[in-house]
Design a protein around this nucleic acid. Structure first.
Lengths: 77, 77
DNA sequence: ACATCATGTAAAACATTATTGACATAACGT
DNA sequence: ACGTTATGTCAATAATGTTTTACATGATGT
């Protein structure tokens, strides 16, 4: 199992804020499978940039409102 | 050769707006190779979401200011 | 109890993105 | 002329993202 990417997302909340849109409905609108949506939503891996643009468009928000990037943790003293 | 993705970018301009930063310098700052930066800059393919976040951070802008997404062209009438 | 729907999950195949190493050219300074 | 730097490009390989098929669970409705 690969380590989870340093990116989190709010897809789950956005889906329910938009009429309890199902994963299947979101998948249909962005041209992906339900499994891919589920994996992204659970942060198993981060999507391609194109997929991220499509998801943001469905919810009418910026990419930054869907995905949050944890900046590099400098290997600390 | 795969078709170019429906995403354009302004990396070249951003580099030169930031002290004529070289592809190599940008690559170093985002932890990628020079060749990958060149390929993205020339729109050979679009980067991962994480790479996009890193590039935007280097230039201090939103992802949308680095990458522009051409919405789906509906197969026209 | 049964059917249906939304979701979680897993393995294999496939597609795309990224790296490495190599060679090329143009621009610049000496 | 020569060396250096920035960039373009290519082929092979590795790493990651996506699809497909399949089976599982909990919730809902009849």
């Amino acid at each position: 199992m690969p380590p989870p990417p340093p990116i989190t997302n709010t897809i789950r909340r956005l889906r329910f804020d938009h009429g309890e849109m199902t994963q299947q409905q979101l998948a249909d609108r962005i041209g992906m499978t339900r499994q891919t949506v589920a994996a992204i939503e659970q942060n198993k891996y981060s999507p391609s940039l194109e997929a991220a643009f499509r998801i943001a468009e469905v919810f009418g928000v910026e990419i930054g409102e869907v995905f949050q990037w944890k900046a590099e943790q400098t290997p600390g003293s």
